[in-house]
Amino acid sequence: MDNLFRRTGIDVPEPVRRFLQGESDPWLRVEEYQDGNTMVVRTDIPGIDPDKDIDITVTDNTLLIVARRREPAHKDQPGYRSEVRYGEYSRSIPRPRGANPDTVEARYIDGVLEIRAQLPEQSATSGTKIHVSRGGHQSPEAPENYAT
Rank of each mutant, 00 (worst) to 15 (best):
V16A: 12
V16R: 08
R17F: 03
R17D: 04
F19W: 12
F19A: 14
F19K: 08
L20E: 11
Q21L: 10
G22V: 11
G22K: 09
E23F: 09
P26I: 10
W27P: 00
L28A: 11
L28G: 04
V30E: 14
V30M: 10
E31I: 05
E32H: 05
Q34L: 12
Q34K: 13
G36A: 15
N37S: 15
N37K: 12
N37Y: 05
N37M: 13
T38F: 06
V40I: 15
R42W: 02
D44F: 05
D49P: 01
P50C: 09
D51M: 05
D53M: 05
D55S: 08
T57G: 04
N61D: 14
L63Q: 02
L64W: 03
L64G: 02
I65N: 01
V66G: 01
E71H: 06
H74T: 10
K75P: 00
Q77I: 05
P78W: 08
P78K: 11
Y80P: 01
V84R: 05
V84Y: 00
R91T: 02
I93T: 02
I93Y: 00
P94I: 04
P94S: 11
R95Y: 00
A99F: 01
A99E: 03
P101M: 08
T103V: 03
T103W: 00
T103L: 01
E105I: 07
R107E: 14
G111P: 07
G111F: 13
L113Q: 04
E114N: 04
R116T: 08
Q118W: 04
Q118T: 13
L119W: 03
P120Y: 05
E121R: 11
Q122F: 12
Q122N: 12
S123A: 12
T125H: 12
T128M: 11
T128I: 13
H131C: 04
H131I: 07
G135R: 06
G136T: 11
G136W: 04
G136I: 08
H137T: 14
S139T: 15
S139D: 12
P140R: 13
E141D: 15
E141N: 14
P143K: 12
E144S: 09
